[in-house]
Simulated assay, not measured.
Amino acid sequence: MTFILDSKLNADTFSVVKLGLCDLRLMNDRRWPWLILVPQRPDITEIHDLTPLDQTMLTFEAGIAAQALKSVTNCEKINTGALGNIVRQLHLHVIARNVGDAAWPGPVWGHGTREPYSENDARAFAKAVLDAI
């Protein structure tokens, strides 16, 4: 079977880079610097559905993404989570948070109205993340 990125993830994110396991993507919402890791495995919905090696790679790549995001944003906190209630395809959110941001201290999901990046700003931010990796 071939890996196909979920259409909602494709519509809501920009590609940053393909890592060893994951497609690293930038969420198109400038209110929070927000990365998405999508393991490039077909028909996977849960972390425990991955092989043990892929689980290890996901953890490793999440750490790399979190360190890069922290370096680029100098944020106070990194939130990491895998929900999958709307998009079933396994994906891991890595979000830079700061005290006083628009949703602090609550979750970012469902808070307010998305503020999309311009294409140039998205490319610049994605490049900064990639350079930090």
Rank of each mutant, 00 (worst) to 15 (best):
A102H: 10
G20S: 15
K127E: 11
Q40T: 04
M27N: 02
W32A: 02
L9M: 06
E61R: 03
E46Q: 14
G81V: 08
L130W: 05
T45L: 11
A124F: 09
G84F: 06
I95P: 01
W32T: 03
E119D: 14
K127M: 02
A65Q: 07
H48P: 03
A124P: 00
T113D: 13
F3E: 09
T56G: 15
L53M: 11
K18L: 13
T51K: 09
F14L: 11
V129W: 00
Q55S: 08
A132F: 10
A11E: 15
D131P: 02
H111Y: 11
T80S: 15
G20V: 13
V99P: 08
E46I: 05
V99N: 14
L58F: 04
L24E: 01
G20L: 14
P116H: 02
L69K: 09
I86H: 11
I36W: 01
K18F: 13
L5N: 04
L37D: 00
L130R: 13
A126V: 03
A103M: 05
T51G: 10
R123D: 11
R25L: 08
G84L: 05
V72K: 00
V94K: 04
C75A: 10
K77G: 07
T51E: 02
A103N: 10
P42I: 10
D49N: 14
A103R: 05
W109V: 06
A124H: 13
G100L: 00
G106K: 12
L26S: 09
G63A: 03
I64P: 01
A65V: 04
D54T: 00
A96Y: 09
D12P: 04
K127S: 11
T113E: 15
T73P: 00
F14A: 06
P105Y: 02
T113F: 00
R25D: 00
M27Y: 08
L83F: 10
N74I: 11
A126P: 10
E61Y: 03
P107M: 03
Q40A: 04
N98H: 06
S118L: 09
G81R: 08
V16E: 02
V94E: 08
A68Y: 03
C22A: 10
P42S: 07
G112N: 07
E115L: 15
L53Y: 11
D49H: 15
V108I: 10
V87Q: 09
L5D: 00
I86Q: 15
L130A: 12
T56Q: 14
M27L: 09
L83N: 03
R30L: 10
I64V: 15
Q67A: 15
V99E: 15
I86Y: 13
G84Q: 04
M57T: 13
R88Y: 11
Y117Q: 09
F3D: 05
R30G: 05
R88P: 12
A124T: 12
M1L: 13
V129F: 02
L53E: 15
H111Q: 14
D131Q: 08
D23N: 05
V129N: 06
D6I: 02
A122C: 01
